[in-house]
Design a protein around this nucleic acid. Structure first.
Lengths: 345, 345
DNA sequence: ATCACAACTGGGAGCGCTCCCACGCTCCTG
DNA sequence: CAGGAGCGTGGGAGCGCTCCCAGTTGTGAT
């Protein structure tokens, strides 16, 4: 036997039912008002809105999720390493963008830090079981299967960066090639003629792009890129330090270095100091990321800025669009980068 | 009339009902197994577990939340300014700690960046309407009513830092007084005798604590703190720069400065360079936070490290405890700080 | 063998919402 | 003036779970 209708929900908060009673309408009508359906007369709508205000009614998320079969939540998945290495501005910039874009929707942001491959696997299962309506993926590596797994499960996904030139999964990237070109053109424009580079891991597409930009800029200026001017790093400071020493040993006459990350530029700067070369007089230095560190290096580091907050916003918009239209246009966005000139070059 | 039971849930995923059917038991029994109730025989439990594995069953969050009247989610609320100013290591450190502590629970982390006072108000309402089981609050200011609002609504809350010495809301803080003492003792131990400090805003409890530590350390060493050795800052680089210039003008003979944040130490360092004073020979410098910037300053900055990740973990544990036991012991934890010695002192 | 009691188990009821069907009404059309 | 065609509306059914109350079975004491 059905229990008598109570005056409030289990926890004392009003339910749809009470709002309906107070407004003198049916449950369905209140639901329609809340969800912005046009099939409600103005009179009724006003009355319902009044009742909602009077009661301080707020829809119950779980009930709504259960009935409507959606969660009104999206997940932002970040490898834990990101929060250390590129903490500023990469991760927090993305986060601000995502959060800003979500601010006037009713959608929750679920943050998932992934430490291990095992957690990565577990995440796919979790995501599938109706925890989220879509997933934002940050810093995906070249061989990462997660984006495809999620996409195959029919879950909307948007990621930052690409795994390759023909990335099938919707994504938002910044113009790494163009940014590197800007940097190298700048160095050439300052009269430097033996411009070296320190690259990231060859298996990361982003690193290849920055190398491509470096080479293209040189060719555009009528110079053939020299192999011995390319140092290999892995985006860490230590690798930048080592690569810089090798470069100088190989080409003592180099007069500029474009580093594919600020952290590597910091390592390179240390190496140059050890070798008694001044920056920017002997060697001009440019980094990539425009991190907080760049601003505070001695001398302040010229760097390529990625529009992190813009990328966060763009990803989120793309994901929300995919969620609502069922993934018809699979966006691929590339946002412009910008050179921030400081005294290291 | 009830519809015939279907073979799977609406979205093709198995439901409790199917697991029960496959294991040849009732719905209630499967629920008991999933929730770890002891009132299930081993035979049955094994059979159910097998069925769960066979079907790849994962409980439906929303359904569970609705039926059990809990959300299995907690919110981490961060003022947006935090993600800029103290991005590293403060925010990401806390985040890693929280995330680590949550890793082997089934609890989701909801991240809420708060930009404006209006959003702050809105959050209270959201939190109340069964979106979360508890709230983690970061960087609360002295006059912030949000912690009390949430606590008054009966929502478990734990925050980092305190608003005052007798903070009523459960919290996890680091030993700011002790950290400042460490720093000053260290400076005195290196033979410095005219130790100045640059403080944070007087209305922030954390700033007062660091000032107290500075003064106590001096007194413990038998010296009376001098008013003209105290510079006022607001945790920003610019304020550190200005305060440093004033201090030197007031007391040209000072030989050490303890800054209540790394950012202010960076500003101070710049001022000292402009004034032609070397670090550490003329003036020894110590910061607070041990940010990434400290490591890369020239010279590398001695700084007080807060156990950010540990604080994140501690907060989370405290919150989970409060959620499960209904808030009986209202924890107040103070974690130790540590001095990281580098060449600036 | 009988009874009390514990240990398990099944399934009804219900969480608060959305979806959708059916039911008045009003207003045209022919 | 009958027959649609819409509009706006009410409310039943059901989302997948947990809770809890009745069984049902098994055990040991009498």
């Amino acid at each position: 036997m059905a229990m008598a209708r109570r005056g409030t929900g289990r926890d004392g908060r009003p339910t749809l039912e009470q709002v309906a009673a107070r407004a003198g309408v049916g449950r369905g009508t209140v639901s329609r008002v809340i969800n912005g359906s046009p099939r409600v007369s103005d009179r009724t709508r006003t009355a319902v809105e009044q009742a909602i205000a009077d009661l301080g009614y707020v829809p119950h998320r779980a009930a709504r999720a259960l009935a409507a079969n959606r969660s009104d939540a999206i997940a932002l998945v970040v490898p834990e390493a990101e929060t250390r290495l590129f903490a500023e501005p990469f991760f927090s910039g993305i986060l601000r963008g995502v959060s800003a874009e979500l601010a006037d929707t009713d959608i929750q942001l679920l943050l998932t830090l992934i430490r291990t491959p095992k957690e990565r696997t577990r995440f796919a299962q979790y995501a599938a079981s109706h925890r989220v309506d879509g997933v934002l993926l940050v810093s995906v590596h070249g061989d990462d299967p997660l984006p495809d797994q999620l996409a195959d499960m029919g879950l909307p996904v948007v990621m930052t960066g690409r795994r390759s030139a023909d990335e099938p999964v919707p994504h938002v990237d910044c113009d790494n090639v163009g940014g590197a070109q800007l940097a190298v053109e700048h160095l050439l424009g300052r009269g430097r003629s033996r411009v070296a580079t320190i690259t990231g891991p060859a298996d990361m597409y982003v690193a290849r792009c920055r190398l491509d930009g470096y080479q293209e800029a040189l060719r555009a200026a009528g110079r053939e890129p020299a192999v011995e001017l390319v140092g290999r790093g892995d985006f860490t400071e230590e690798s930048g330090h080592a690569a810089m020493r090798e470069l100088v040993a190989r080409r003592p006459d180099l007069d500029a270095v474009f580093c594919a990350s600020d952290l590597m530029a910091i390592g390179a700067r240390r190496a140059l100091r050890e070798l008694g070369r001044s920056v920017p007089d002997d060697v001009a230095l440019v980094g990539f990321d425009d991190s907080a560190l760049a601003r505070h290096l001695d001398p302040p580091l010229t760097s390529v800025r990625q529009p992190m907050e813009g990328m966060g916003r763009a990803m989120t918009r793309a994901l929300l669009a995919e969620i609502s239209d069922g993934g018809t246009d699979r966006p691929r966005l590339v946002l412009p980068t910008e050179l921030v000139r400081r005294s290291s070059s």
